[in-house]
Design a protein around this nucleic acid. Structure first.
Lengths: 274, 274
DNA sequence: CGTTCTATTGACTCGATTCAAACTAAGTGG
DNA sequence: CCACTTAGTTTGAATCGAGTCAATAGAACG
C-alpha cells in the first residue's frame, strides 16, 4: 500500500544526510524568537494546567528545568526507534511526527505540535518505541530526562498532570483508530485538519483559523495513510466546496462548520476538563 | 463502511436487554473457579511485575484491595462512554472490548484480555471515553477506584508500574494504527491472532497455541474493521494454507511462523523489559 | 422439526492505489 | 537572463482489494 509515498521518503532521507542537524534553520529560529522567546515552557505549562491549575512551586519545578534549544531542518530525524535517550524532546515550534519502520516502509503514527513532549512515552519506558522526524523545519528543546523525573517525583500533582498527558495521547490514538476504521479519505483529511486546528488553538496558535504548515501533499498523505494521488484529489474536493484554501504552506479554514461535518469531528476526545 | 456488522450489533444489543447483567453465566463462572479461584489479582500482578518485581508490601497493597466479582453474559455492556465510574473493571476471564459510538455506528478500538484493567484510562481521567462490552461471556472484578488510587499514592513504585501499563496500552494502540495503515485484510487478522496469543501467553493462558475464544466471525470482523463476508474469506485463506484451525470457538495456531510472517508480527511493542 | 444464528458463496460495485505523464513553480548555474 | 533541474501538484486510465447485497448451507437450540 502506498509505495509512492515511500519512494518520496527515500529521497528525503538522502536530503536528510546532506543537511546536518546542527545547521540552524534561520526562518524557524526567527519564528521562535518572535513567539516564544524566554518562555520555552509556556505552552507545555498551558497544556498541563488544562485539567487544574498548578501551584506556583510546581510551575517553577518545570520552568527551572535546564534545556537546550535545537533547530531541526525539515525532514531531519530527531530520534530513532530503540534509542535510549537521556533527554526528552519538547516541541517548541513546528511539527514532529512519530513513525515506525515496518517491513521496509515507514508508517506515520502520530503528530506532535508545539507544547507536546514528543517522546513522553520514553520518559517512563526508557526505550523509544518509534522514530521521531521533523515535518518541516522545527525547533525543539532537549530536557534531561532524570531531572524531569525528579521534578515529577517531587510533586504528586505534577506527576498526575503528566499521567493525564499520556491518557490524552491515548485518546488521540484511539480517535485515530476510529478514524482509520470509519472515515473515508475525504473525511480523514478533514479530521486531521480539525484535530490540528483544535490542538494548535489550545496552545494559542492559529486563532484565526489560518495554519502555517510547511508540508507538501506527500506529507499529508503519509499522515493520513492515503496515497499521494488520492490525497491531491481530496484536497481539491475540499477546496472546491469552499471548506479550505491551501497554498504556499498556508491552510486557511474557510468553512469550519463544513469541515467538522465532513470530519464528523467532535473535540470531546481532546478535552481534559473535569 | 461495514454496515452489515452494525446490523448484527443492533440485534445483539436487543439480546443484551433481555439478558440481565446480573444473571450469572454458569459456564464462565465454572471456568473462573477452575483457573483463578482465590487469586483474582494474580494475572494483574504478573503484568505489573514484568518490568521489575515488586516488594511484598506493594503486592499486598494490590492483593488486599476489596473487589466484587461479576459474571457478564455475552455481549452485555459493562460501561458506557461518558460514565463516571466509582469502580475500575479488572478482566478476570474472557474478553472485553473498547468501542465508541460514532455517527450511528459502533467502532471497536481495543481488546482486553484477563489481567487487563479495561478502563485504566478512567482511573486518571474520571470520565470514560469509550464503552466497554464483553465479547463472549466474561468475568470481571469491580475495584473501588479511590482505594486503588490510594494504593498508588502510597507506593511510587506501584504508581510507576501502572504508568508503564498505560504506556504499553499506548504501544498497542500505535501498533493498531500501523496495522490499519499498512496491512491488508489477511495480514490484519493474522496480526490480531498473534497479538492475542502473545498477550494471553504472557499471563499464562494458551501456552499450547490453542485459544478458546468465544467469538463469531462477525466479532472478528468488528475487531479488525473488515466486513463480515471478507473476514470469512480471510479465515478460509488462513485455514487453507494451514496456518490456523478455527472451529467450535477454538482457534488452533498450527503454524506460528507462517502466521507471524503474514502478520509481520514482532512482539517488541508488547514487551516491557528493560 | 422449525427457528434462529452462523458460515459460506457468487455477482456487482466502488473507493482507492498504481502507473504514467503533463504541468507549475522555484531555484541554479552558465 | 535564459536553459536546465528538481520538487511538487495535477490529470487520466487501468486495476484491485474490499464492501454490499442476496441467497444458500449448516449448526445449534428450543
Amino acid at each position: 500500500m502506498c509505495r509512492n509515498v515511500e519512494k518520496t521518503m527515500e529521497r528525503l532521507a538522502q536530503r536528510d544526510l546532506e543537511h546536518s542537524t546542527d545547521r540552524p534553520d534561520q526562518a524557524a529560529a526567527f519564528r521562535f524568537n518572535m513567539l516564544e522567546s524566554g518562555r520555552p515552557y509556556s505552552r507545555l505549562l498551558r497544556k498541563l494546567e488544562r485539567w487544574r491549575s498548578l501551584p506556583i512551586e510546581d510551575r517553577n519545578l518545570i520552568s527551572n528545568l535546564p534545556l537546550t534549544v535545537k533547530n531541526i531542518p525539515a525532514y531531519a530525524k530527531i530520534a530513532y526507534e530503540g534509542d535510549e535517550l537521556s533527554e526528552c524532546c519538547l516541541v517548541l515550534d513546528g511539527f514532529v511526527c512519530e513513525h515506525k519502520h515496518v517491513a521496509a516502509y515507514d508508517e506515520t503514527i502520530a503528530l506532535h505540535v508545539p507544547g507536546d513532549i514528543a517522546d513522553l512515552q520514553a520518559l517512563y519506558h526508557r526505550k523509544l518505541r518509534y522514530s521521531l522526524t521533523a515535518l518541516g523545519p522545527a525547533i525543539i528543546a532537549r530536557i534531561p530526562r532524570t531531572l524531569l523525573l525528579d521534578a515529577l517525583n517531587a510533586s504528586p500533582r505534577l506527576r498526575h498532570a503528566f499521567e493525564l498527558q499520556i491518557v490524552v495521547e491515548g485518546a488521540i490514538l484511539r480517535e485515530r483508530i476510529v478514524s482509520l476504521h470509519r472515515r473515508d479519505a475525504t473525511s480523514r483529511v478533514a479530521q486531521l485538519l480539525c484535530d490540528l486546528t483544535y490542538r494548535l488553538q489550545s496552545v494559542g496558535i492559529a486563532a484565526d483559523y489560518t495554519l502555517n504548515i510547511p508540508w507538501t501533499q506527500a506529507d499529508l498523505a503519509r499522515l493520513t495513510g492515503i496515497s499521494i494521488v488520492h490525497t491531491n484529489r481530496v484536497v481539491q474536493r475540499l477546496r472546491r466546496i469552499g471548506a479550505i484554501e491551501w497554498a504556499n504552506k498556508r491552510v486557511e479554514i474557510r468553512d469550519w462548520n463544513a469541515l467538522t461535518q465532513i470530519a464528523e469531528f467532535s473535540p470531546a476526545y481532546l478535552e481534559t476538563t473535569p
